[in-house]
Every structure is written in structure tokens, then in C-alpha cells.
Amino acid sequence: MYGGGNTFEGIKTDSLAQEDPQKLAAFEARIARGEKIEPTDWMPQLYRKQLIRMIEQHAHSEIIGALPEGTWITRAPGFKRKMALMAKVQDEVGHAQLLYSAAETLGKSREEMINDLISGRSKYSNVFNYPTFTWADCCFISWLVDAGAIVNQLANAKGSYGPYCRALDRICAEESFHLKYGHHCVIYLASGTPHQREMFQEALNRWWTPMMHFFGPSDKISAHTEILMRWKVKMGTNDEMRNQFLDMYVPKIWELGFTIPDPALKKDPATGKWAYTEPDWEEFKRVINGDGPCNKERLAVRRVAEERGRWVREALKSPKMNYVTPLA
């Protein structure tokens, strides 16, 4: 999973002033031809900075995203769900591992990135700052947040930076199983007892606004990203991604007989565009700046995990450590 609507560095008009114009032109021509940029290739500073920021946010979203669902591993109802949820959350942590490695190819170490996460300097997907009150909230994430992530990730996998694209190809393959698992869980709630149906309807009511926020601010108010699109760092606008998600999943939610808490939600058959009530973007800003229902709790858990594991990481660096040859 992963949050879309990344926040990017503010782009100043003179951001490219110090770059060699010939190299820059050659770089842009490569991207226009659909070539991938590799770690040792020349790239403008701004490209490197934006990519580190984006991949790092994605990696953080994976480990923070493991927390709201992870708390349900110990409570998952029955063997089948327990085993599947464990495997799913483990995949997410594995994605973080892949993504930190991809970001490291650009020159920032995993340790620096994690330090920036726990000090609050770098962001992660806003959606994980909301609580999972019931099993149905956990199912909502597995199905629909992962579905939103796939929309973003499939687009980004066609981007220009080689290591990120390759990581995303692997991630998308696993995410497609998460989506099936999540959908399966929701089908069981939908066709279960009245209480089970009600659980999911309540989760849907709680999660709809964060889900709409997931793709980032409306194009009307979001920062200028033309250069990022040209460089294939950003592969679609926030509204395009949101529309694609609505187009794929609203019919599936309706099919299960649930009510989406937005009376204005409707597809215009002529344009293929969905009309909806704009979610509260002030709330989005508030939450992304640290004032959401779970921001403090999520970072506190991460901070404690880092703190408690410090002695282990230090021991691994000790020259006295007994090297154990791995058995192949």
C-alpha cells in the first residue's frame, strides 16, 4: 500500500539554473524516448531530490501502514484470516525494505530516512493517521486503500527512475493479492450477519473522506507539477488518479449493497468523469501537518521500536561479532 498525493519540494524558478544545459537537454531527451535513468547516470539535482523525497515517503507509508492493520493480526477471526493478514502485513514491510533500497541508490541512507521519519521531517501517507476501530476498518484498508495504492503504483511503475520502477513492478504483483484478500474479507462481511454488514458500512462511512484525500489535493489547489510530469516522476494528476479509482471501485462497493456517504457521487456518462463532493481539504492539511487522530501514536510506536532496537543495530556493527556463514 502507499499513499498517493505526495508532497513535493517547492520548485523555485531558478532550480535548474546551475545545471549544464546540454546535459539537461540530453537527460530530458532520454526520458522523452522512454529510457530509464539509472543510479550512476547524470541527473539534475532537483530530479534526485524529488525522487528521494517521493520514494522515501512511499517507504515510510509502507512501515507506518503496517501498524493500523498489524494490530489486527492478533485479533483476526479464524486461521484463514490470521495467516493471510500476517502474510499481507509482512509484504508491506518487505515493500519498505525494497523502497528504502531504491531510495538509497540516490544517496540517502536508510538510517537517515528513518531518522527523518521519526523526527517528523519527512511525511508518509495521510490515510494511516486514522484509527482502525473494528475488524471492518482493517478490511477496508486491505481492499480499498490497497486498491488506491495499486492505481498510483501501476502509473508510477511507468516512471523514469529504473530502481523505483523495478521495485514497483514487484510490489504491484504482491498488492494484487492483497486486493483479492481484502475484497474476499469484505464479501464475507457483506453476505454475513446484519451486524457484520453494519460493521463494514460504518467503516466505509469513517474511511470515505480519508480515501478521497488519499490521492492528494484537487488539481485546482495542488502545486504546479509540470516539470515533474515531464520528467516522469509524477505520472498523473491527483484528480486523474482519484477518478480512475472511483471508476473501478465505486461500482464494486455498490454491487455489495453498501452506501457511499456522498450523495453527489455520480458518473457523467458523456465525459467518463465522476462528480463528487470535494472532501475537506483543510482537514487534509491539518492531518498532514501532524494534527490527525493518530499521527502522534504512529510516530511514537515507530520511535519506540527504533529506540528499543538500537542495541541490536549497534551489536551488528561490532567487530567482535561472531560471523556466522549462512547455509545456502
Binding site: 510506536v301 521500536a305 528499543r308
Partner: peptide, 23 residues
């Protein structure tokens, strides 16, 4: 219970793998 809490990511993943085998 170690999922998401390990001292390094690789340990989260390892404990989760073993837990899956055990369950």
C-alpha cells in the same frame, strides 16, 4: 506481535515468516 516492531526491518520480516509457518 513483532510485525512492524523489529529492531531492523529484516527482523520484522523474519519473525513474521516464522509466525506464519508456526500458525
Amino acid at each position: 506481535e513483532w510485525t512492524g516492531m523489529g529492531p531492523i526491518l529484516e527482523e520484522d520480516i523474519a519473525f513474521s515468516s516464522m509466525a506464519q509457518d508456526q500458525i
